[in-house]
Amino acid sequence: MESFSFLEHFQIWLKAYLILSLFSFMYKDNKFYKLSEHVFAGLSAGYYVGLIWQTVIIQQLVNPMFDKGEWWLIFPGLLGLLMFARMIPKWSWISRTSLAFYMGSTAGIYLIQTLHGFILPQVLSTMVSLDPSNGFAATLLALIIVIGVISTLIYFYFSKEHTGFMGVTARVGIWFIMISFGAHFGYTVMGRISLLIGRVQFLVYDWGESIRQIF
């Protein structure tokens, strides 16, 4: 491996310190952890401001208005600024129009997107052939999907009491749900461990190499 420059060493040691200061919480709460935690919260909030300033306010609003003469962008700009009226209780009602525009237009997109992009294709692909001539494996899989979707929907349907046929189907639903949640749990364990592996890889490979080069 190439030898690190002074800046690279500094960056690696800084990252290592931050990682270890946060990990120290696993032993017990302490000042190093608290400091890192609060700096982290601040930097993350500051990131939003910098990003929005450059990519939205400058690139999408100010530059087109002044360079290209797209004066009508003053309207979304004003709508955006009106949002800040929420900070003053007496004037907070002024922000309603901006919020209404945001909520209304998002709702318009969501309505079509959920019906056309989620419900129709998902229902359509549940309408599968249960014909045994498709072969045992295909029929079994189709049966699992059809029974599972219906029983899950019934389990989450609370407008009617779960008794009789509804009760039995909801009971089947909970068994399906337990299997799916088990799979989800297995995947979640995997995901969390992967993140820790990433940190350990940094400490062993990068920080370890830096230590080796320095000492």
């Binding site: 997109i109 079509i112 997107q113 959920t114 056309h116 992009g117 989620f118 294709p121």
Partner: peptide, 9 residues
């Protein structure tokens, strides 16, 4: 949303 907007529409 990539699936339900961009792929679907």
């Amino acid at each position: 949303y990539w699936i339900s907007i961009v792929n679907a529409q």
